[in-house]
Nucleic acid binder design. Structure first.
Lengths: 239, 239
DNA sequence: TATACTTGTAGTCATATCTACTATAAGATT
DNA sequence: AATCTTATAGTAGATATGACTACAAGTATA
């Protein structure tokens, strides 16, 4: 079934506010209970009703693609100021059976504790999936998701972006477990501490965890201004 | 001047063979006399006549974007089997004043000794530019080029792709100078040798340079199959 | 109150890696 | 034969890494 793009009366493209051939799809990562999670939505309408896929949408005609991705994220989750980065364009001619549509993939990192994402999804059902539980997705969304994972794994080693998945205040063990989960390996606590603290990227909050049934650990936060300053001096984050 | 997209008789999109709103632009890198170079073309027609820009073109309707990039490269330079990788999509609404066009950037690495690229450009003038000599380019092509440089600098440290810019047989000094030029730093010859040879990525060709006015250096080549095998064993290229 | 248990944090040590060198070899040029 | 250029080998101190031990600070349990 081909969609009708032309308005027969005016002879023009219908709905001039969007470019019909380019969409945005977004992989939204969260982190909970030591596990990386991805937010998926269940399509409520159309041919793919009932199937899971990545949240996404159209780009408006006069809107930059980064802006469009931010807007979509805001519409879907109700929040802005989120770590968001473009993956690449996906343009296999058969990726979308109903027509030639190119999609630009993005991925976002959010702090689940801070927001209740699912509240933003009114029309369609939304749910978090751990990596092992991800079902078969519509179109090429599994490919986009796998690409985003590869990108995230690479990026997290070369830029201090992991913090975006954690609460503002976190312990070194939480940070280490985040790295272990994303990179899929086991690390040594003392060595991890030393390596990370040596970078002097973290602010010691002089606070401790509360309500834990063991010795409370120090809390730290990441300060982007410190990172910027270090970067200017030639520092380059490598893990 | 807005282009007419609608055929008034049929009520359909004109020229169904291309998606009018998405193009491809390609940064082609070469390496000569120790310097990184970029291939630019001078526009022969249209508003931008006489100005320099990146080679590019339209994506055909039934063509994947990677395939389209390869086809364009072949049309422009007359050769295939070239290292080519997508950068990302550039979609500022004002990037192209004559209408909303999204471009997907690619970058290619070619061995200049092997081919005479400029022969492929019949219609428009093409020329190599060293990095310091790059003029102001049309649209957002300077931004695309700068992005490609950042990507190349990063990629060359994490994957053995630099070889694509060198002749098939090369000396360790040539390789080192390539790295020095791309990364913009000075290196130590003995240390570079040791580090690179330790990876066991290079094939010692048991040959030496000829017609040099000094002690001839050993020639090496890069063998992708060796790299694949090492990768399977867990090796990861880092420089 | 004492003991075990869990997690945090400090320190040790052998090994590998990086960096800045020096030294020598192999040719070509004068 | 002396000299110059570049290739290639080696060396030694500094630094980083990885595997470990030890102990501290709490909570839970006996």
């Amino acid at each position: 079934m081909k969609r009708r793009l032309i308005n027969q009366e005016t002879g023009e493209l219908e709905d001039k506010s969007v470019i019909k051939s380019v969409t945005i799809d977004c992989v939204i990562f969260g982190f909970q209970d030591g596990k990386l999670e991805v937010l998926l939505i269940k399509h409520a309408l159309g041919i793919k009703k009932g199937e899971w896929g990545l949240p996404g949408g159209w780009i408006k005609k006069e809107e930059g693609i980064d802006l469009a991705a931010n807007r979509l994220l805001k519409e879907l989750t109700g929040l802005g100021d989120i770590y968001l980065e473009q993956l690449k364009a996906f343009g296999d001619p058969n990726r979308f059976p109903e027509g030639r549509i190119i999609t630009i993939g993005y991925y976002a990192l959010i702090n689940k504790e801070k927001y209740d994402i699912k509240a933003g999804f009114t029309a369609s059902e939304a749910s978090w999936f751990k990596l092992e539980e991800i079902p078969e997705l519509i179109y090429d969304h599994n490919e986009i998701l796998n690409f985003s994972l590869k990108k995230l794994r690479h990026r997290v080693k070369h830029a201090p972006i992991g913090f975006n998945l954690l609460p503002e205040k976190f312990t070194l063990l939480q940070l280490m477990q985040l790295y272990e989960e994303i990179l899929g390996l086991k690390m040594d606590k003392p060595n991890f501490r030393r390596k990370f603290l040596k970078m002097k990227l973290l602010v010691d909050l002089k606070e401790k965890e509360k309500d834990v049934s063991h010795r409370a650990a120090k809390l730290y936060k990441f300060d982007d201004r410190i990172y910027q300053k270090l970067t200017e001096k030639g520092f380059s984050f490598e893990f």
